[in-house]
């Protein structure tokens, strides 16, 4: 029973979804839009589950006095700080009460001056990680690895103006780099994409027909 009902819902929902793809009539499309709206609304009901989950993990850590439990206190405090400031002061760009001083609302201040810089910082770590990954990975261990190494060096030089400054071969580097990117690279990518598209179709069909059901928790 516990698996049959979800499977029936998946089957019916899936078949309706497929049929709706082929019927452009306004009557059907309106129903489709409504269903999608409900999906969007329903998904937000799962948000409290997420918050409860994160609170449980961290209150557990504080109770156990696990390693670095002090950070968990900061995490819980910031969660509530953001929720409260959002509700009390609003999420507008300007708080009328602070506007005389040209200040943002506290929520927007936290968002713009704290969250965006932190996210940018995390993103910029990529530069460091790419360098170590490239240093380790590009070794001419075999014939194929050598080809990969040479191609990568050309593309790296082609992406920046330094490549063009090299005498004699400088003019050709961006051209070769472009060729590598738009021919061998593109061909491989398209091959993967076609496989992915077909795999998606097959997996979707398997899910709709109830053949693939591991995601329900019961294989």
């Amino acid at each position: 029973m516990k698996t049959t009902i979800p499977l029936i819902i998946v089957l019916v929902g899936g078949i309706i979804g497929i049929i709706f793809q082929f019927i452009p009539h306004e009557f059907v499309q309106t129903i489709n839009d409504e269903i999608l709206n409900y999906f969007r609304v329903l998904s937000f009901f799962a948000l409290p589950l997420g918050i409860v989950s994160i609170l449980m993990v961290h209150t557990g850590k504080i109770r156990r006095k696990a390693q670095h439990w002090q950070y968990s206190i900061i995490l819980i405090l910031t969660i509530f700080f953001m929720i409260v400031t959002g509700f009390v002061f609003g999420t507008d760009r300007f708080d009328p009460r602070l506007a005389n001083y040209g200040w943002n609302t506290i929520f927007m201040f936290m968002f713009q001056q704290v969250q965006i810089p932190i996210e940018s910082t995390m993103f910029s770590l990529l530069a460091f990680y790419i360098s170590t990954a490239a240093y380790r990975a590009f070794r001419a261990r075999s014939k194929e690895a050598t080809i990969l190494l040479v191609a990568s060096l050309i593309v790296m030089l082609g992406q920046v103006s330094v490549g063009q400054m090299i005498p004699i071969i400088g003019d050709y580097i961006p051209v070769i780099s472009n060729w590598i990117m738009s021919n061998p690279n593109m061909a491989a990518k398209r091959g993967i994409l076609l496989g992915v598209a077909l795999g998606m179709l097959g997996t979707s069909l398997k899910i709709i027909l109830g053949i693939e059901r591991a995601y329900l928790g019961r294989a």
């Binding site: 589950l49 918050i51 993990v57 996210e119 995390m122 993103f123």
Partner: peptide
């Protein structure tokens, strides 16, 4: 243990951190 499967953050890089 229920706490072994847990939610971190909907923000991409907060999750990574």
């Amino acid at each position: 243990k229920e706490q072994s499967v847990f939610f971190v953050s909907p923000s991409q890089f907060a999750y990574v951190a």
